[in-house]
Amino acid sequence: MSRILVPLGFLLLMFLFWLMLDRIGEGEYNPRDIPTEFIGKAAPSINVPDLFDPSRMVQTADMKGQVWLFNVWGTWCPECWREHEYLLELSKTVPIIGLNWRDQADESRAMLARMGNPFRQIGFDPQSNVAMDWGVYGAPETFLVDAEGVIRAKHAGAMTPQVWEEKFRIYFEKGQGTP
């Protein structure tokens, strides 16, 4: 009995291990991913000054009634450079509010001048105050906020056409923020 059971158990473990590695390889599973606490909760306020106009604070009250993206980035983040072009393309049809995180204001403005600016407004957050309120732990991170101001989706890592298709596009189809 145990002569069959033991190798069988071992084979099962091996299979499960292979399954896990395969899913990691396909990018379907990342053991370092941290599930976000914010899906289905009201979006926190973005209580920091604007990157281009430090005299005024970022306003999200007037975003009520439309679906928008909140993108956290920094000039120090290579994945942010990589997603930048796609964000520019998205910004033609989708409102994006940016959060310039842990960065130098002049360098950030220079990067946007050089590469284009996909953001309607950009919060300047060198002290991580807003980033912490949104539970951000890396850059880039993109949140989707619906017409009622509730967070519906989040992606940690660069925004790509594939990610857009899988996680975000559906919320814009009816323009209501509910799939």
């Binding site: 599930p35 606490e37 539970g135």
Partner: peptide, 8 residues
């Protein structure tokens, strides 16, 4: 911290 980053 948990409200922002979860039980993690």
């Amino acid at each position: 911290m948990v409200a922002r980053y979860g039980d993690f």
